[in-house]
């Protein structure tokens, strides 16, 4: 095995393949910083989230919940639920990780985002021999991370100099971005059933205290999706 010699190449390949996704994530980071500052979240708290938590959706949810004075344990529970999909990501990358040393697995887990998962799983599929996978993965992850932290700071600075930025309705950027993420993953009947139940649940439970409606509706929607997928599997066992 050729090791250190050619490790810079897969690292740079990881950076290159992640570039379009980094561009798409940049407005997210700016809006996150600006929105957080206009919601009255303190600066060290905003930067700490991007530096130490590094999870876009969770960070947005946290500042949205903080703005409505949600109890901290509910915020943590929501963050945990939102992060469960990453458990699925890392589970699906398990075959790539069997030969990776344990101390490297922790930073790689920290850098696991939707974007890095997308390019890393693609690479794993196209190049099953695993050579250069770690460097490729770290190239993608470190690039996403530095971009996220830097543009959080940019957004925070913009948010401070434009104090009425919260009245601009900037949360629309998050809404349409989430639409752009969710709609393409709605493929099967069960996916649509899950989304539909989630939408109905969202309207019926929006005034429940401390976002308990979000947790309750997620649970119902996931159960509906699971149920429909098992029914459809019985009818079409090949699917």
């Amino acid at each position: 095995m050729k090791l250190a010699k050619s490790n810079h190449k897969p690292f740079l390949l990881g950076v290159r393949d992640t570039l379009p996704l980094v561009i798409a994530a940049t407005p997210f980071a700016i809006v996150f910083g600006a929105l957080a500052v206009s919601n009255g979240v303190s600066e060290w708290f905003i930067m700490s989230m991007s530096l130490f938590v590094f999870a876009g959706a969770s960070q947005f949810i946290a500042i949205a919940l903080l703005a409505t004075a949600t109890a901290f344990p509910i915020i943590l529970l929501t963050v945990f639920i939102v992060n469960l999909r990453h458990m699925l990501y890392s589970a699906s990358l398990m075959p790539q990780m069997t030969k990776v040393s344990q101390w490297l697995r922790a930073p790689m887990a920290f850098f696991l985002t939707d974007e890095t998962y997308a390019v890393a799983s693609n690479r794993a599929f196209q190049q099953p021999d695993k050579s250069g996978f770690i460097a490729y993965y770290l190239g993608s992850g470190i690039y996403m991370y530095s971009n996220w932290v830097f543009f959080t700071w940019v957004g925070m600075t913009l948010g401070k100099s434009i104090p009425d930025i919260s009245s601009w309705g900037l949360d629309i950027a998050m809404i349409v971005a989430f639409i752009g993420i969710v709609v393409p993953i709605l493929r099967k009947r069960a996916d649509w059933a899950c989304a539909l139940s989630a939408g109905v649940g969202a309207v019926l439970t929006y005034d429940w205290p401390h976002q308990t409606g979000l947790l309750f509706s997620s649970f119902i929607a996931i159960s509906v999706g699971l149920l429909i997928s098992f029914i459809d599997k019985k009818e079409k066992p090949n699917d």
Binding site: L84, A198, A202, S217, S218, L226
Partner: peptide, 25 residues
């Protein structure tokens, strides 16, 4: 298998709720 399937529905459920509540409420 069932748990991995359930996890697969998490982004759809949670993000849809956030979208609907932010756009409609």
């Amino acid at each position: 298998d069932w748990l991995s399937k359930a996890l697969g529905f998490v982004p759809i459920a949670v993000l849809t709720i956030i979208i609907v509540q932010s756009a409609l409420i």
